[in-house]
Design a protein around this nucleic acid. Structure first.
Lengths: 196, 196
DNA sequence: ACCTGAACACCGTTCAAGT
DNA sequence: ACCTGAACACCGTTCAAGT
């Protein structure tokens, strides 16, 4: 219910009193099930962060599997844009047990990242993807890119959606390419074929 | 003054009434200089976003100039961590006239990005860097990476700082490598040597 | 055990009134 | 023109009291 209110009116409009009346309850009854407001926000953030289940097919190339993870997360972000910008400010948004995190680390390991380094590589990747997602969802991406009108013919304001998709995908490809170059350069540096 | 209060106690602790008393003024006097609270937050966010002046030496390689821009932004973020996590949620944090944005677009153009595409490339780069910065500053980066203790000898909790630096730099190098691969693949695709 | 009304200590903001 | 006190419509949360 809290999530529904947030999706409708934004995080800052969520109020213990409103939540209670939306639940047909007395405002004070909430405090019997939850210690305070931050706990409900944390609950919502974590629930959504853990929500999406992304079954990456293990036969695909790691690049494709990362693309799939990122796209899945993007549709989640588009479903809850108001929560997204708020959640990313919390350090506990994504938990180590979340399917997104598990999927990402699994893919990176399959791609050849040494197991001991996986979290240290996954963390920046996750942060970068989330950063682009937030910037897309709150309009920053669109505003930054809208300095020069790309075409000349049209009205000039209509196509906000597809342009954002292109930029998100560009960022994603950049990250994948960066990951790739890091992996190959490392493999050259060592050149010992550790299978498993 | 608002910035000082935010740095001390966080954005959510900033109050018109507290700000006024910190200014030795009546709470209501503020409304003669500012329409509402959001305006002071916007003012603070934009002021800080426009603050840092980064004189990239034009003789350096574009990779080094991007590194310098990013590192400068990082020191800014470390100076105002509380504001940072809040500001990034605003679409108006970084403005097209800000030195960071101008510097970034200038470097990308020098690197060979066609002038018409510069903003569409700069925007994702900016978003990704900011994303990593936020995740570092709010502790998410550290939390995500702390799943496996990297070493075995020590206490295991002491070295938070240097590890974060390594991850930030890793993300930065990934972005640069991704940019690089995009530039070279494009140059091969066209192969017409447009000077200027 | 669970719910509730009243109350406390705050908010942002308006507005009529002061100088 | 600028400042101010009182007031309004809200908050989150506590707590004693109800069932």
């Amino acid at each position: 219910m809290a999530l529904r209110l947030i999706d409708a009116d934004g995080v800052e409009a969520l109020t213990m009193r409103k939540l209670a009346t939306a639940l047909n309850a007395n405002p004070m009854s909430l405090y019997h099930h939850v210690p305070n407001k931050d706990a409900v926000l944390q609950g919502v953030a974590r629930t959504v962060g853990a929500q999406f289940r992304t079954a990456t097919r293990e036969d695909a190339a790691w690049q494709d599997r990362i693309r799939q993870l990122a796209e899945d997360f993007r549709t989640l972000a588009h479903r809850h844009p108001e929560l997204m910008t708020y959640s990313f400010a919390r350090p506990d948004f994504i938990q180590p047990e979340d399917p997104f995190w598990l999927g990402l680390t699994a893919v990176l390991e399959d791609a050849g990242v040494p197991e001991a380094e996986t979290p240290q590589v996954a963390a920046p990747v996750c942060a970068a993807v989330l950063g682009v997602l937030i910037a897309e969802v709150n309009g920053a991406l669109h505003q930054w890119s809208a300095l020069l009108p790309t075409g000349d013919g049209d009205g000039g304001r209509a196509d906000t959606g597809p342009d954002d998709s292109r930029m998100f995908r560009l960022a994603l490809e950049m990250i994948i390419a960066g990951l790739d170059s890091r992996l190959t350069s490392e493999r050259i540096g060592r050149d010992s074929s550790d299978s498993s």
